[in-house]
Simulated scan of single mutants.
Amino acid sequence: MIKKNIFIILGVISLIFGTVGIVIPLLPTTPFYLLSAYFFSKSSEKFHKFLLNNKVCGGYIRDYHERKGITLKNKINVLVLLTLSIGVSMLRIKNLHLQIFLGLIFICVSFHILKIRTLR
């Protein structure tokens, strides 16, 4: 029972971080959502179903967990949003070290997204 409650709390926390990550480029959304799905699968069928059936993120999570990849359309969407969010951040930040850091994050995340198997 204690383990179940801890997993629910961790699932909610990672879901919050993932949601915040939608608007903050340095905070990754997808890993936190996948972590939430894992915690909910081990603790609450209700929360797990809610996450998997969510019209905004459920399809991404199901594809990644069940089919071990993401569709080409979703890859393109992710890369466009990543480019826009990091690009705007780099333009607004005047510190060269932070711009370089954001550039490295962009390269690493883009590489990871491109490396994931493309579903048909």
Rank of each mutant, 00 (worst) to 15 (best):
L104M: 14
F17R: 01
I24N: 09
R92L: 13
Y60G: 08
I113N: 02
I113E: 07
S85N: 14
Y33E: 07
K94S: 12
L119A: 04
D63G: 04
S43K: 10
I113S: 02
L72W: 05
E45L: 14
V109R: 11
P25L: 03
T19E: 07
R62H: 01
K55V: 05
S44Q: 11
V109G: 02
Y38P: 03
G21Y: 02
I76E: 10
N53C: 06
N5H: 12
P31H: 05
R117L: 11
L81V: 05
I8N: 03
I6S: 01
K49I: 05
L102E: 02
I107L: 13
E45Q: 13
I113K: 00
H97W: 13
N95Y: 12
N77F: 05
M1L: 10
K4T: 14
L10E: 07
I22E: 04
S85E: 12
K42Q: 15
Y33H: 08
P25E: 06
V88E: 03
R67G: 01
C108V: 15
V56N: 08
L91S: 13
K55E: 15
T83D: 10
K94C: 05
N95T: 07
V88P: 01
G87C: 10
M90K: 13
L34R: 01
M90E: 00
I70F: 06
K49F: 02
F40K: 09
N95V: 08
K3F: 10
R62Y: 03
F32S: 13
K3C: 03
T29N: 07
L96I: 12
G103E: 04
I16R: 08
V88L: 15
I105E: 09
I2L: 12
S85Q: 13
L10T: 01
T71Q: 07
G18I: 07
G87N: 08
R67F: 10
F32I: 04
Y38K: 09
N77L: 11
I105K: 00
L81M: 14
L81A: 10
R62C: 04
Q99S: 07
K68P: 00
I61L: 14
